[in-house]
């Protein structure tokens, strides 16, 4: 009897820890990419696009908050969303490497956003029917915003790709260089099992290819992909992001104004 009780409890805890990791993975994607795009604030190529990027950053950071609130509930340790954003270190973060790579020039930022949005859109579409009620609610809410993001980044791929020789060259280089970070999303890790949808890659390839062709650019074909972010193995860039993002709450814990 005792053994049985243990194993049942074991399964339940395991299930909860998977859900916690999924909530953190999704929240970390949104937070880190949101932070990255927010770095453009005041540096956008034109005012309208500066505003567009800060809006997208806001949406993503708001989405991160919803996932972290959920994570806090699953974890049950009395933490809040700020805890997950500000009191964890590099190894605890589970975002895709794609989200943390530097902004580069505007074309790099667009390429990164384009690959991410195309995946994010498909993911949230699927999660909008999730059996996990909370993930379903968050996905339904976020999907509306991400529909705008995806349109924005796709339009820019086309505008720059099918633009001047210089913009075309820069867009192609960005599409090629960031490509190696685009596939991690489709390589499942243990904690996703049964919670996140699988098999999104074919549709993603099809959608991405359509835009890249419309942009008169060449679709990358390399199949080797960088991975590790989902399990906490990050590039050297994440530590710098956290240093900036977490400085204040760590230097002045629980500061309010």
């Amino acid at each position: 009897m005792l053994l049985l009780a243990w194993s049942v409890k074991g399964i339940k805890m395991n299930d909860n820890s998977n859900r916690l990791n999924v909530a953190l993975h999704l929240g970390d994607n949104a937070l880190i990419l949101g932070h990255r795009i927010s770095e453009w604030c005041g540096h956008g190529p034109v005012l309208e696009q500066d505003i567009a990027m800060t809006n997208i950053a806001l949406d993503l950071i708001g989405q991160a908050k919803m996932y972290f609130d959920y994570a806090a509930e699953i974890e049950g340790q009395g933490h809040d969303h700020d805890y997950f954003a500000y009191r964890r270190d590099v190894l605890d973060f589970k975002n895709l490497l794609l989200c943390e790579i530097p902004n580069g020039d505007f074309a790099y930022t667009i390429a990164r956003q384009f690959y991410f949005d195309q995946w994010h859109f498909l993911l949230l579409t699927e999660l909008s029917n999730s059996e996990d009620e909370r993930l379903k609610e968050i996905a339904q809410k976020s999907l509306k915003e991400v529909t705008y993001h995806r349109r924005w980044s796709s339009e820019w791929v086309v505008r720059l790709g099918d633009g001047t020789p210089e913009s075309k060259e820069k867009m192609q280089r960005a599409i090629d260089d960031t490509w190696y970070y685009s596939g991690e999303a489709f390589i499942p890790v243990d904690y996703e099992n049964g919670i996140l949808p699988i098999g999104l890659k074919d549709q993603w390839m099809k959608n991405v290819k359509e835009v890249i062709e419309e942009a008169t650019l060449k679709m990358p074909t390399d199949e080797w992909m960088q991975e590790g972010g989902k399990t906490g193995n990050h590039t050297e860039h994440l530590g710098f992001i956290l240093a900036e993002m977490q400085y204040l709450p760590r230097a002045y814990p629980d500061a309010t104004w």
Binding site: E48, Q49, I51, A52, N55, I56, L58, D59, Y148, R151, W152
Partner: peptide, 13 residues
């Protein structure tokens, strides 16, 4: 439309 993102998250320009 100048931009689908405006002065606040809910507005386009």
């Amino acid at each position: 439309m100048v931009s689908q993102f405006g002065s606040t998250p809910c507005k386009a320009h």
